[in-house]
């Protein structure tokens, strides 16, 4: 349903959001992914880690 809703939305807004997402994905591919050990480390509260 949400996927269908997405296809019906304003094209300009879709293009802007897609553009931002593509740039962010490139940042992930070329910067974050090669530095997995030191970047984008998702932290969880201590009582949820086990």
């Amino acid at each position: 349903m949400l996927g269908y809703v997405l296809t019906q939305l304003d094209l300009t807004a879709l293009a802007w959001t897609a553009g931002i997402t593509v740039v962010a994905s490139l940042y992930w591919v070329f910067y974050l992914r090669p530095r997995q050990d030191s970047r984008w480390i998702i932290t969880l509260p201590e009582d949820q880690q086990s």
Partner: peptide
């Protein structure tokens, strides 16, 4: 509209 798209995504 951009916010709507981002929320749906």
């Amino acid at each position: 509209n951009i916010t709507g798209v981002a929320v749906a995504a």
